[in-house]
């Protein structure tokens, strides 16, 4: 017995329309080509012709207008369209009569003229200088050697690193900002970052301790406040650890974890350094009150890092010492 349900036939007709090819769509959007044939009912006008004067496009009148028109054609007397006495027309040229009109009508006569100005503005802020556009007013003269289709000239290569929208801030500053951020509030973090940089700019130049040398080749301390981004980057990079200690469970035998040093990349090193600075700043005492308290503590911690006073230096020293001790545990890739 054949199965009652036939899977191969379609139970009902499907309204299936084949997909319009993308190329034909694009053509239709860009250029209106006239069709090859024209129906009798189609207008003889071309597509873009002005049809606003066409009798077919005019709105229909009311019932009384229609009746009046029919009466006009048949020669009979139709309904009166004008209601009341057209006083305004009567007194149109009579100044004396106009002055005796009620106030409402005087106002309506006056209001026919063009108004002085609106009470509200429909434009953006007025510019006093006509030459000032939103974009740089003096356009560069079109060069003869400019390739066709280029309006503002080609960018000078190589494109600077911060020209991209997503990478417009200094990478170290951006990393720091993102690590300050709490609950996804980036703008609060950015405000705090601005406060930190301002504090670095306004505090006196740091006195660098010879016991805690900064990165080799760092600028003299008097140059730092005027370049707060460099100041911050120098503080982060100076304390950034070179490695971390990974403990491998049970590898040392007897359930003891084996300490293995692992080298870190630039972002990883910076990230650890920033986290140490944040931890040290959290333990500091808040001196003032209000919004910028944490930013102030953070800025003071950064200065103390550069001056070699911060406890972060001990952390870094400890990790490095551990790394030296755990060097023996490294199994470099010796293959047989």
């Amino acid at each position: 017995m054949p199965p009652r349900l036939n899977l191969l036939t379609v139970p009902r007709t499907i309204a299936y329309r084949p997909k319009v090819a993308a190329s034909s769509l694009r053509n239709g959007a860009l250029t209106r080509t006239s069709p090859l044939y024209r129906n009798y009912s189609d207008s003889k006008d071309t597509l873009g012709a002005d049809r606003s004067k066409d009798p077919t496009t005019q709105p229909l009148g009311g019932v009384s207008e229609e009746a009046a028109k029919t009466a006009d054609i048949t020669g009979s007397k139709g309904p009166e369209l004008e209601q009341g006495t057209p006083v305004e027309e009567i007194v149109k040229d009579d100044k004396e009569a106009q002055s005796k009109l009620p106030k409402v009508m005087q106002d309506s006569i006056k209001s026919h003229g063009p108004k002085g100005s609106r009470s509200f503005s429909t434009s953006a802020r007025r510019c006093d200088f006509q030459t000032e556009g939103l974009i740089h007013a003096e356009m560069p003269p079109p060069l003869a050697s400019m390739p066709p289709g280029v309006k503002f000239g080609l960018p000078t290569l190589p494109v600077p690193a911060d020209a991209h929208l997503k990478y417009r801030y200094d990478p170290a500053v951006k990393l720091f900002t993102n690590l300050i951020m709490e609950h996804g509030k980036l703008s609060v973090a950015q405000r705090n970052m601005a406060l930190i940089l301002t504090h670095l700019r306004t505090s006196p130049p740091p006195t660098i301790s010879p016991l805690r040398p900064l990165l080799p080749g760092s600028p003299p301390p008097s140059h730092l406040p005027l370049n707060p981004t460099l100041y911050l980057t120098l503080a982060i990079d100076s304390i950034a650890p070179l490695l971390r200690i990974r403990s491998q469970k049970g590898a040392a035998g007897g359930g003891v974890a084996l300490q293995i040093p692992v080298p870190l990349g630039l972002r990883q090193r910076r990230r650890i350094a920033v986290e140490w600075i944040l931890a040290a700043a959290t333990k500091r005492k808040n001196r003032g009150s209000g919004k910028g308290g944490f930013a102030l503590r953070l800025a003071e911690e950064i200065i103390s890092v550069v001056e070699g006073k911060s406890s972060v230096w001990e952390k870094r020293g400890m990790i490095h010492k551990q790394g030296v001790a755990a060097r023996a545990n490294l199994k470099l890739g010796i293959r047989r």
Binding site: R201, T202, S203, P204, P205, P225, L226, R287, G288, S289, G290
Partner: peptide, 22 residues
């Protein structure tokens, strides 16, 4: 603890000079 008014004074402090600026 900071003295009464000390923290507010710090917040409202007006600084008119930056010795680092040129």
């Amino acid at each position: 603890r900071p003295a009464p008014g000390e923290r507010k004074a710090l917040r409202k402090r007006v600084v008119l000079s930056n010795t680092n600026a040129l």
